[in-house]
Simulated assay, not measured.
Amino acid sequence: MDKISVIVPCFNEEDVLPLFYQEVTKVLESIENTTYELLFINDGSSDHTEDLIKLMAHKNKQCFYYSFSRNFGKEAAMYAGLENATGDYVVIMDADLQHPPYLLKEMYRSLKEENYDCCAGKRIDRTGEGKLRNFLSHSFYKVIQTLTKMDMDDGAGDFRMMTRQMVDAILELKEYNRYMKGLFSFVGFNTKWLEFHNVERQGGNTKWSFKSLFSYAFKGIFSFSSTPITIAGVIGGILIGISLITSLYSSFVHPISYLTSLVLFLSGIQLIFVSILGQYCSSCYFEAKQRPIYIIKNTNKKLRS
C-alpha cells in the first residue's frame, strides 16, 4: 500500500485551515490502496494556526505538526516538510485552497501508471488578481527563463506530487538560500503538468506583498543565474567607450556643459553594479555560515533529520 505525504506550509492561516483539512482529507481517503499523512509546517504564525493544527493532530493520528521557533519563510517550511515526509509520494500544497485538492487523484494516477516522477499543477490564468501584479509576475518568469535557461513557466508553482526518488534528490541540495521552483527544475526528472484555472483564496489575506514578491524574484535570479554580473560588465564597457568619445569631443570640438550630470549618472551605474556584486557576495556569506535552514520549537512527531 502506497503512502502519500502532504506538506502544508502555514503562516497565519487560521481562517482557512478547517475548510482545507475537510477538503483534502476527503480526497485523500478516496484514493484507493493508499494511506496518507498530513504534515502541517507552522512557519511562526502569530494567530491561532498552531492551536488548530494541534487540534487536528489530536483528532486524526495521520496529522502531524512542526512549529518553527520563528518565521523562516515558505522555502524553509517546504524543506522541513520534505525532510520529515515518510511517504512513497510527497505533495506540496498551500492551505488557502488555491491549489485544488481534487487534482491529487489525477496526480497519483499519473505517477503510478504513466511513469512520471512528478505531476505538478499549472495555473492557466490569473483571474481575480490585479493587472499590475499579473503583468509583473508574467514579466518575471520571462526574465528568469531567459537568464537561467531553466524550465520555470508562468503559472508553474510549488503545487506538485513527487516520487520518493525526486524528493531525495532535492534533499541533497543543502543550500541556505533556497528557491524551490528553481530546485524542482534543476534536479530534472519527468514532469507532467495538470492545468487548472486560478482559484481565489477561501479565507484570510495573501501573505505576498509587492515587497516580498520582488525580494523572492531577486532571490530566484541570483540563486540560478550569473547573467546580471555579465550584463554589468558589458554595460561598464559601453560606458567606458561613451566616456572616451565624450572626452575626445570635449577636447577637439566643444566643451561639454553637462559633465557634472554625466559623472553623477556614471556614479549611479557604478552603485547599481556594486549592489549586484554585493547580492552574490552576501549569498556566499550566508552559505559559508552554514546556519540551519529552520529551527523547530515543538512537534508531535519524531524528527527524521
Score class of each variant (00 low, 15 high):
129 E>I: 09
152 M>P: 01
97 L>D: 03
137 S>F: 06
9 P>E: 14
220 G>C: 01
297 K>N: 13
123 R>H: 05
140 F>P: 00
95 A>W: 01
53 I>D: 11
133 R>W: 07
29 E>Y: 06
171 L>A: 01
271 L>M: 15
196 F>K: 06
269 I>V: 08
271 L>W: 14
164 R>A: 03
193 W>A: 08
237 G>S: 09
129 E>S: 09
100 P>L: 09
1 M>K: 06
287 E>A: 10
303 L>I: 07
142 K>S: 13
272 I>L: 10
156 A>T: 08
201 R>V: 01
34 T>D: 04
262 L>Y: 02
179 Y>T: 05
283 S>Q: 13
132 L>T: 06
186 F>T: 13
214 F>P: 00
14 E>T: 05
79 Y>S: 02
251 S>R: 13
162 M>N: 04
53 I>S: 10
51 D>P: 15
108 Y>C: 02
226 S>D: 12
136 L>I: 08
160 R>E: 06
73 G>D: 05
12 N>C: 03
86 T>Q: 07
215 S>N: 07
102 Y>H: 10
235 I>E: 05
199 V>W: 03
251 S>L: 12
118 C>R: 15
173 L>V: 09
231 I>N: 10
286 F>S: 10
213 L>W: 00
92 I>T: 07
129 E>R: 12
228 P>Y: 07
212 S>R: 03
117 D>T: 07
305 S>I: 09
148 T>E: 01
151 D>C: 09
282 S>F: 13
184 F>Y: 06
180 M>T: 07
192 K>V: 05
103 L>W: 10
86 T>H: 04
12 N>I: 02
139 S>K: 08
300 N>A: 03
197 H>S: 11
229 I>T: 14
240 I>T: 08
251 S>D: 09
138 H>S: 14
171 L>R: 04
155 G>A: 00
124 I>T: 10
58 H>T: 15
217 A>E: 02
95 A>L: 03
193 W>R: 10
16 V>D: 00
236 G>K: 12
64 F>T: 03
33 N>R: 01
